[in-house]
Computed example of a mutant assay.
Amino acid sequence: MNQLSLDGASHREKPPLALTPPLGWNSWNCFRCYDINESKLLEVADALVDSGMLQAGYDTFVIDDCWQAYARGSDGRLKAHPRRFPSGMQALGAELKSRGFKFGLYGSPGRKTCAMIYDRYPGRGLGSYGREDLDAETFAAWGVDFLKYDWCEADEDGTDLKYPDAFERMALALEATGRPIVYSISEYGRTQPWAWAGEYGHMWRTTPDIEKNWASVVSIGETHAKISNHSGPGGWNDADMLQVGNPGLSSDEAATHFALWCFFAAPLMAGNDPRTMGEDIRKLLTNQRLLRINQDPLGIAASCAEIAPGVDLWTRPLVQGEAWLIVNKSEHPIDIEYRSGAISFDRRLIAPVPAQAQILPLYGESPAAISERSVWSIPSHGCLPISCREDK
């Protein structure tokens, strides 16, 4: 349905992109602002190729904030930082595309970017306020395939911007370029974007920024348990970038974090340094059985039921079958049993599961068959993924 924007422009149907959740890598969680440059990012791209992550589906390479020169050019256009990105963003994007990636960039709707506010990045007028058409044209000319558009207190500095109008402005500008660009809306869940952002974007942040700790993972899970029905092909609840492989999470917590995002049908944007990641992290991030659940074309996110204090059961329908994820948020291990055609906890049947279902590996092991009276121990902050689809 067409909608009339505030300035009278007709808002068309958004481009039919992101029919499954986008997968890729984003520079922010690992390198933040001042630690990015074109040579380092190309090393990261090569590591994503060499590690098998690109082949596994992580094909969107997103350069977050601080790629910009401190000021726009005399023509008003954004420019690459001349010292850290001497080749320019179009050339860097071409290098990424030559390796098989889609090219993603960062922008913001106000006068400032987030790094200008929180990292003292010494820029001037790097936000897109009043220049949405010009910036969209620039991104399209550079070959950008993905835009992360980050609120960053866009209503300050006299802009008087409001949600969702600020994001509609860039949606219209991107559509006008004629280039298919996946549009990622980031306003941290402040205005329940799952209720409106699907008209403009292909994914929308649901919570404040993820932190490198277990409490943050649990908090995001609690939000997604309430909004799972507001997501699907072409428009996804974005649980924020992955912290898998960064300090702060144990191996069990990292595995649960990744499995939850797969069951959420959330975009998977790795945020670690693939140049230095260990083999266990590589195996987890390229776990094809969990990635198939994330990318299932039915696109229905898992629903959640608390089966005991600190123990959640996530259930996700698939095109062929069903998948379950038991998450132990408690501080002690728990045992799960299979009997009488169902999984049970504390002698209570909690979900019927076909006998042909399998326990899915987390770090690259082989799937385990289910049999009567099988018992599995889930460590504190760990999880148990189960699928009735036979992955070959």
Rank of each mutant, 00 (worst) to 15 (best):
Y118M: 14
G100F: 08
G382M: 06
A91N: 11
I210P: 03
G382Y: 05
E199C: 09
A166N: 04
N328A: 11
G73M: 06
D209C: 10
F264R: 01
G201C: 04
Y121N: 06
P15D: 00
Y188A: 14
L313G: 07
N2E: 13
A80T: 08
P361E: 06
P86M: 03
T286F: 00
N287P: 05
A357E: 01
E156V: 07
S374Q: 02
C383L: 05
A270V: 07
S303E: 11
M277D: 02
P122G: 05
D75T: 03
V327C: 06
I117E: 06
S231Q: 05
L242V: 05
M53A: 12
F345Y: 15
I370E: 00
E175K: 10
W28H: 14
D133H: 09
M116H: 03
S377P: 04
D135F: 07
K112P: 08
R347M: 07
I350N: 05
T113M: 04
L268P: 06
T177L: 02
R111H: 10
Y149K: 05
R99G: 07
G127N: 01
I359M: 07
A47L: 07
M277Y: 00
F85H: 04
G76P: 05
V144C: 11
I343L: 12
A266L: 01
P367S: 11
Q90S: 15
L325C: 05
G245R: 11
S39H: 11
R12E: 13
Q320A: 11
L291T: 05
A197M: 01
D119E: 15
W314Q: 08
S128L: 09
T315Q: 12
E306T: 15
L360G: 09
A368Q: 15
D50W: 02
S387T: 08
I359Q: 08
Y129M: 03
D238Y: 15
G100D: 06
T191E: 13
S216Q: 03
G104L: 06
A369R: 01
Q68W: 10
V327S: 00
M277K: 01
L134K: 08
R282S: 05
R131C: 12
A259R: 00
N246Y: 09
M241F: 12
N229Q: 13
E322A: 10
Y118H: 14
P361Q: 07
L48F: 11
W261H: 09
P109Q: 10
F263D: 02
S377T: 14
L6C: 06
D209Y: 10
R190W: 06
A69N: 13
P22Q: 00
V244R: 07
V375K: 11
E331D: 14
R72W: 04
V218C: 10
A69E: 09
E365T: 11
